[in-house]
């Protein structure tokens, strides 16, 4: 059997179900299916401006796999743009790695599995921590 695809780790699903072109002169036909991992790759590389070698680490995959996913994502989006197709986001091969926090000072990541645990960095005790799931800042400062 072929080796099973290792699931790609993503911290949060996209907040939309898809995008539709408007004002197109031709009738919008067809759609592209953008996988969650592809969305995540675009987000990490082009929105968070993270270098690929760090982004692949975050998604728990090799750099080559990351590059492949990223390339596929860009091609899908390009084809949707040029051919005025609908973009639909679909689940793909992912698991959600939610509730990870990152310390803004020492940059280590950690979970807060229990509300009784103090909301500080367990390594450097900084209070400047940020939930990695959201795109917006939930800075505690």
């Amino acid at each position: 059997m072929p080796r099973r695809k290792s699931p790609r780790k993503i911290v949060a699903p996209p907040v939309f179900k898809g995008y539709k072109p408007f004002g197109s002169s031709k009738v919008c036909d067809g759609e592209v299916e953008l996988l969650y991992e592809e969305y995540e790759a675009i987000k990490l590389a082009d929105y968070d401006l993270m270098p690929h070698h760090e982004a692949c680490h975050l998604m728990g995959i090799s750099r080559a796999t990351f590059a492949r996913i990223y390339e596929s994502a860009r091609r899908k989006i390009a084809s949707a743009f040029v051919e005025a197709k609908t973009i639909k986001t679909v689940y793909g091969n992912v698991y959600f790695d939610e509730n990870w926090f990152r310390c803004n000072d020492c940059e280590n990541a950690f979970t807060i599995p229990n509300p009784r645990i103090k909301r500080i960095c367990p390594v450097c005790r900084s209070q400047s921590i940020q939930l990695m799931n959201s795109t917006g800042s939930t800075n505690n400062k």
Binding site: P7, K9, F110, N114, I117, V123
Partner: peptide, 22 residues
């Protein structure tokens, strides 16, 4: 350095804090 999905869900369930060192 990292945690897999099964280990994470089990540790989460029992309220154990995980720390990933950079």
């Amino acid at each position: 350095g990292d945690f897999g999905p099964k280990a994470k869900s089990l540790l989460d369930r029992f309220g154990i804090q995980m720390v990933i060192l950079k």
